[in-house]
């Protein structure tokens, strides 16, 4: 399943490919980093909360609604019932996040089809 998202408005307006690639690369790096930390820190609810909040901020910017919803659910679960249902949810979030990171990186890469390398 492809992740549904939209690049931020400013990225669609930028004429400089290098700048687009830099921004896209940073977004992808942040997403991948969140997924990595979420996998590593799954035993620390406080840390998970922080990571999910950060991830939700990036997902919101990309209008990645599905990921935003999942992050919200996971944050709520951590708040109200820290021991329930997080493992499945976290795994699903990490999976979606990695896919989103890959999609953004591919879309903003200068070597993507249709753009000069």
């Amino acid at each position: 399943m492809a992740a549904t998202y939209r690049l931020p408005e400013i990225m669609r307006e930028l004429g400089d490919d290098a700048e687009i690639e830099a921004l896209g690369g940073q977004i992808a790096d942040d997403l991948a980093n969140c997924a990595k930390r979420l996998r590593a820190d799954d035993s620390a609810p406080g840390k998970q909360h922080e990571i999910l909040h950060e991830l939700r901020g990036v997902a919101l910017t990309l209008r990645a609604e599905r990921l935003v919803t999942l992050c919200r659910e996971a944050e709520a679960a951590l708040t109200h019932a820290p021991d329930t249902g997080m493992d499945d949810l976290a795994a699903h979030i990490c999976y979606l996040t990695d896919m989103l990171a890959a999609s953004v990186r591919a879309e903003t890469s200068r070597s993507r089809p249709g753009r000069p390398a």
Binding site: P8, I10, M11, L23, D30, E54, G57, V58, T61
Partner: peptide
Amino acid sequence: EDTPSLQMLYRTVLRK
């Protein structure tokens, strides 16, 4: 802003 990509995005919007 602590998230690097968001900081970069906001800074770009503001600079433009």
